[in-house]
Design a protein around this nucleic acid. Structure first.
Lengths: 300, 300
DNA sequence: GCCGGATATACTCACTTCGAGTATAAAAGG
DNA sequence: CCTTTTATACTCGAAGTGAGTATATCCGGC
């Protein structure tokens, strides 16, 4: 019996935040995500990727999480002796440990997804996108209603609120509607910077996953330096979520979670009143979070 | 350059709920999860699995979601020409469409994880488990504190509340502490029924994922028949979560989500007052849910 | 036919959480 | 010393959540 033989490949979405700009590590001048073959010598996928990232970038990798495994037919290796299976990972790199961040190799998320940054309100480009999506909705009578609901929900139209977690759905809608060059549309009709093969889709997956995760697990701290101010922390979260947050409530949220503690020092680099410095309470690391139950429990 | 060649295998965690018992489809009299090679003819992994499940079981597969991809060294294929990559999926099967449920092939979740069912309060077996875990905690001085926190958090001890989502963490702790035969411990010291290779770990992954998911996406309905009563729905959720829920609050939660509507009919099969029958509002299917923001937004 | 058991359904209330706004403190610079 | 800027602290009402109680409708036994 023929057991499915395949080429195994690892693809990484490595992110860092510099100032208020979320960035991703790229190769080929920003056209592709770093990837490499899964070598036989590695203990596991995770270990393989860590090793490989360490060699290639010199940045120690903090948090690492599997994203998704793809094996669609169009991903078949050219000299196909079997097809290619791509296993993608999300990795977080601390700002200070990423000297390359800001230099070539690291590109801003919103270069690829300009419509995902809502920190300055709805970005202008979004109107153009939703106009084109509306054409796509109207162009078919059969699934029209269904398409309309998907667009409205994903982009926060018609009463629905903008939900930052839906980045992948938004990209997939645009792909279906032929608004990205990866779907075969002419470069003129493209929105955002495109990438090699399905790398932009994988990046969207990583962004969506991270945006969802920061809400129920303290992963932001994997991106922060050893000590930081509350404003820095807030700006980092805002950069990731692509949203502006309510400052007093953000602070309340943070300290009622008891995730951080004062270092005792302060910094006056920020301009106004000096800000206290905090550090992450590592004791809490693996436990904690995973907060809400959402199910109406019965205490008997 | 040697591109990593590997064997690709699909493993499925197929679940259904009959009455108040959550079940999983198994092969080898309950010793293993169904699995098979990833054939080259398939369009994608997802399509490959759907086809394969259809052929093997005759049950149409509703919801299907990727779980995790494993490729640890100990999973190497015997006549190793490369190693085996296992891609696991979680699938949900509707009760009525699964005539085999209850018959051989389908086994109850809690046969494998008796400590995960808290519907009748803390199960007795848990005390024995945590006693043994406590020995494991005390046996090492170096990481003792860390281990203690992990155990307390995972099993809801020392002030922490029981969290049904942590099934995977609990199994992994037991594995580390040598309380399951899969870790090489003698059968006498085993807790719960063990499985082939790492299949029980994969099942734990599936259960944990599903338990987490029912809180923010309406996936329960993939397990319900066309029409159902609110009590049936509640019992299904309780079966999955391994918890008892507060009836009035459960009903409030359900109808404020507007996920279901009355069929107009009622059933008196349950004994007391006849219960109204409801159906899932399919219109809502892809949108909706993904409820809470958890981030303190600013409206400017 | 009436009554108790069983199940379904409906309503109330206190407490916590959350969104939103306002007020005070401490630095820098003209 | 007064304004600007950033940091920090407090308040309030609306909404959500945990928990309990009350009413409705069937069945079966007497």
């Amino acid at each position: 019996m023929t057991i499915g033989l395949a080429h195994a490949e690892l693809i990484a979405v490595l992110s860092a935040v510099t100032g208020d700009e979320p960035r991703v590590m790229t190769v080929r001048s920003g056209d592709a995500l770093p990837s490499g073959p899964f070598e036989l010598g590695h203990r596991s996928l995770q270990a393989g990727l860590r090793e490989w990232v360490g060699d290639q970038t010199g940045h120690p990798l903090g948090y690492l999480e599997q994203l998704y495994t793809f094996a669609d037919r169009d991903r078949t290796h050219e000299d196909a002796e079997g097809r290619t299976i791509s296993i993608s990972y999300l990795g977080l790199v601390r700002e200070q440990a990423a000297p390359g961040a800001g230099k070539p190799g690291w590109h801003g998320w919103y270069e690829y997804f300009p419509w995902e940054d809502h920190r300055g309100g709805r970005p202008e480009i979004q109107a153009a996108i939703t106009d084109r999506l509306q054409d796509w909705v109207t162009s078919e009578t059969a699934r029209r209603e269904h398409r309309q609901r998907r667009v409205d929900f994903a982009f926060g139209l018609d009463g629905a609120a903008w939900n930052e977690d839906l980045g992948l759905q938004r990209y997939e809608l645009m792909y279906e509607a032929g608004l990205v060059t990866e779907a075969g549309c002419p470069p003129a009709k493209n929105f955002g910077r495109s990438m090699f093969a399905d790398h932009r889709r994988i990046l969207a997956t990583g962004i969506a996953r991270l945006r969802a995760k920061i809400k129920y697990r303290p992963v932001v701290f994997e991106l922060m330096p050893e000590s930081f101010t509350l404003s820095q922390l807030q700006r980092t979260v805002e950069a990731l979520a692509g949203l502006t947050l309510h400052k007093p409530n953000f602070r309340r949220l943070i300290d009622q979670q008891e995730l951080i503690e004062e270092t005792g020092e302060a910094t006056s680099e920020t301009g106004g009143r000096p800000a206290k410095l905090f550090r992450y309470r590592h004791a809490v690391l693996e436990e904690r979070a995973l907060s809400g139950s959402k199910l109406p429990l019965s205490r008997n």
